[in-house]
Design a protein around this nucleic acid. Structure first.
Lengths: 327, 327
DNA sequence: ATGAAAGCGCTAACAA
DNA sequence: TTGTTAGCGCTTTCAT
């Protein structure tokens, strides 16, 4: 496999000239340019990217951490990838399984300069630790993070939950339960706050067994309905973060003889492809756009980084209630 | 940010010694090793991966091409990633949208040495073009490819389709239709062959309108049912490649008043998480294992590549009929 | 056990 | 417009 030196001697010019032809530099005579190009084509030469990365100090690649292959993260990911490829960036994907060690490994790539920046679609690591890698390149989280040294692009989960609750109360519901993913996350705390605030406003008491945690997959939805069927007093409506869970709920509710929305009204989240088939009323968080904005945030921080001190970009992406037939 | 030279002078040793400490080389006195390690820790030094890649001629990263974020590819991907991370490899993901240009760009990474090998979860490019990049590193396709210079790990789609058809005929069905993804793919041709061969055996004529092509998403399933409802003579059973499509079919069939399996029996493919909730009888192709074996194939070719002439590994991964309640 | 020095393949400052 | 040359940061002979 030929290198730039081979091309240079074969074309009878210096490596500089070859380098100039490669980068479209203007100061090359047409004659030499043609000759060099001819040798390059004939030899099937391509520059070694690692040498370029080494000398340029960047790789034009951004790392992305996803905890799982859940559709939620996929939607974000697709936004990141769209935007990245448009900007001429590659995407190095890391699946963390919510494991801190894996997240640290991805941060390590930043230190070792294999990636120019890192986007967390979800994080398990404490913000402080993440921030300590900020000196190696821009870091973006798709979840609100206080620290101003990193960027974050996020949904206002509190407001979104209020919107969902209000939609349900507007339809006459007061016996409302909800399902969330990981219990300890920041977003879950926000949702709890929103939930209780609406309940307070309504003057109805909170029923702890109507709060279902650790629901992320379709089978969790099934489990939830099974649980509900055993209750003496059942909720008449459910707010469900994640339409895959909502799908499980709807399907299982129907086979248990519950009518949607008469016996059980559902507001989902995410607006996945399956939501339409299920006629699911859902809150679309524009996940793809969150992904796009995340990449943009990385990109803008890169530009700045050189001149000023890096200061994170914070951006809240608006959500939207999509009304269908489950409420 | 310190480099190896800085560490060396700070520790009062040569760069060689630092390099030896870094790689755990035995010939370093305990005293110097300790001193060097101390400086490394104190400086927070990490080797620049690009320099290492350049001199070693490899990146310990494998590229993966997925056309879309469809669950099917996700399942394969998760297998690849598991195996890769176990072997200390990173994964550079490329989303091709079935676009040849994108696939070529991924192949380009192989030429430029940014990745050590490439796995196609799906390909649009002609095999010949893909093979022409074989000299730059091992290439694996998750789909049977004749050429022996590349590896492939695949499902025997013909046999799987026969299995599905036989399961349906064993339950008394003769009016069977089927749905596949892209019409022009090799797998679709194999399935067509399997379909017609079973039909021939049965002595029933082929009804072209019972073959539904370009079905990949849930909404395609809805479309298919809508179409079926307009037919004078309807199929009593459907073989559907892709459980997301099957989900659309089941949901829409039910809302059209069709009972599953009495009025319409379904055999799906893939056994996705949603399949269980839908009580869908499906053919599990062990997609995750296909991913794992694909990485293994890459890995073994790498080892060989140095010694012998590269010769692809061909591996058929067994499938399995999972019986539930849709037939 | 240790280090000097020769690259890996490329870019860019500088000189001509 | 072109070429010489000095690195980018690291590994690895080859001496000692």
């Amino acid at each position: 496999m030929a290198n730039i030196k081979d091309i240079a001697s074969l074309a009878g010019v210096s490596v500089t000239t070859v380098s100039r032809v490669l980068s479209g530099h203007p100061y090359v005579s047409d004659e030499k340019r043609r000759k060099v190009q001819q040798v390059i084509d004939q030899q099937g030469y391509t520059p070694n990217a690692n040498a370029v990365h080494l000398i340029k100090g960047q790789t034009k690649t951004v790392g992305v951490i996803v905890p799982s292959s859940h559709s939620y993260f996929h939607a974000i990911l697709s936004g990141i990838m769209d935007e990245a490829s448009e900007a001429g960036y590659g995407t190095l994907l890391y699946q963390s399984r919510y494991d801190r060690k894996e997240e640290e490994q991805a941060l390590h790539l930043l230190r070792t300069k294999q990636i120019d920046g890192l986007i967390f679609c979800s994080r398990s690591l404490p913000v402080d630790e993440i921030v300590s890698y900020g000196m190696y390149g821009p870091i973006v989280t798709c979840e609100h993070a206080e620290d101003e040294r990193i960027s974050s692009v996020y949904t206002d989960h509190h407001a979104a939950f209020i919107t969902g609750m209000k939609h349900l109360t507007a339809h006459g519901h007061t016996d409302i339960g909800y399902c969330v993913g990981r219990a300890e996350s920041r977003s879950s705390r926000q949702r709890y706050k929103a939930y209780t605030s609406v309940l307070d406003e309504l003057g109805v008491p909170l029923i702890p067994e109507w709060i279902f945690e650790n629901s992320t997959e379709t089978k969790d939805g099934i489990r939830i309905v099974d649980k509900i069927m055993t209750m003496k007093k059942r909720p008449t409506a459910l707010l469900i973060t994640g339409d895959e869970v909502a799908a499980g709920v709807i399907l299982q509710a129907q086979s248990a003889g519950l009518r949607i929305p008469e016996d059980l009204a559902i507001v989902g989240f995410d607006n996945l492809p399956i939501s339409e088939a299920l006629k699911l009323t859902t809150i679309d968080q524009h996940l793809k756009r969150i992904g796009q904005e995340s990449f943009r945030a990385f990109y803008e921080m890169r530009d700045k980084g050189m001149k000023e001190k890096p200061k994170g970009i914070k951006k809240s992406v608006p959500f939207e209630l999509v009304e269908r037939a489950s409420v």
